[in-house]
């Protein structure tokens, strides 16, 4: 039986290893080299071009499926958009609810007593295990996928927020209280900004989990749109080009979400304040 002790949540710095390759130049160089090799191998018949279609073919598929000649027209952007809407809705829910729960657990005895056992029990459950239950509850519906995203992200948010509250300098509360701040003012103007580096870490980790869970959930529980649905549907028709297109889009979008979107948020907050946001 695994019991997760919130009190011993590790500071987020330990949650992520150093990037394997040192810089963007080296990293993109490796990727380009691999693509060239793959292209050659597929064209020269070293590998099965049906199972491993050439990157240029995949790119062409992405291109046509993104335009009016797609099947249906503009299929790719519609899949991407639907997945993104589900993801962002689920993440937003997870951030709001996770932050409130995390602050309560970090600061009040009753919330800790109430939620800690629940979290310990449910955190290890793979998110997808909820999908059948959700399908029964809501049917094939965006609500199912949004709730899957929420569940996938919320534990990470709660976890890092609790760690953030524990690391908070109690004297920050003291200063605010000696200025006569109300509970709400303390929550909005002291606690939220003080735990922001942790919130960003929680969002970054949570978004990674949520993105993976979303794609899987869309395979099980989406009726017509979403990248997960697109891949699943393509496998029925054995369109390997589309499958690879989906995988590549998932990788690229995942990278953009974690690094560009959250990176932006980080640059405009914790980096500007000169507080280290832990990676």
């Amino acid at each position: 039986m695994s019991t997760i002790d919130l009190a011993s949540a590790k500071p987020p710095s330990e949650a992520r290893a150093i990037p394997l390759l040192p810089n963007i130049g080296a990293r993109s160089g490796v990727i380009v080299a691999l693509l060239v090799l793959w292209e050659l191998a597929a064209r020269l018949g070293w590998i099965n071009a049906f199972l491993f279609p050439a990157p240029s073919n995949i790119a062409a598929t992405i291109w046509t499926q993104s335009g009016p000649d797609g099947n249906p027209p503009y299929a790719m952007p519609m899949h991407v958009l639907r997945s993104m809407i589900r993801l962002l809705a689920g993440i937003a829910l997870a951030v709001v609810i996770g932050t409130v729960l995390g602050v309560l657990i970090g600061m009040t005895r009753w919330a800790r007593t109430l939620f800690q056992p629940l979290i310990s029990i449910f955190m290890p459950v793979p998110t997808l295990a909820w999908t059948p239950v959700l399908l029964l509850l809501t049917g094939i519906d965006d609500r199912t996928t949004i709730i899957v995203v929420f569940i996938a992200a919320v534990f990470e948010v709660i976890y890092t927020i609790v760690a953030g509250i524990e690391m908070m300098n109690v004297k920050l509360f003291w200063v605010a209280r000696s200025m006569g701040a109300s509970r709400l003012q303390i929550f909005l103007r002291v606690i939220i900004p003080a735990i922001f580096p942790y919130l960003i870490t929680g969002m970054r980790l949570g978004t990674g989990y949520a993105w993976r869970a979303l794609i899987a959930a869309e395979m099980l529980a989406a009726s017509s749109l979403g990248l997960g649905f697109m891949i699943y549907d393509a496998s029925e028709y054995m369109s390997t080009n589309v499958i690879y297109a989906g995988i590549i889009l998932i990788a690229v979008l995942g990278y953009l979400l974690e690094n560009v979107l959250i990176g932006r948020l980080e640059a405009s907050t914790t980096e500007k304040w000169g507080i280290q946001s832990e990676r």
Partner: peptide, 19 residues
């Protein structure tokens, strides 16, 4: 009974709001 704006404190370690 507790802190209040009738008393202002300057801490030895400053305790500024970094944000």
């Amino acid at each position: 009974r507790g802190p209040g704006p009738d008393r202002g404190v300057v801490f030895q370690e400053f305790v500024l709001f970094p944000w």
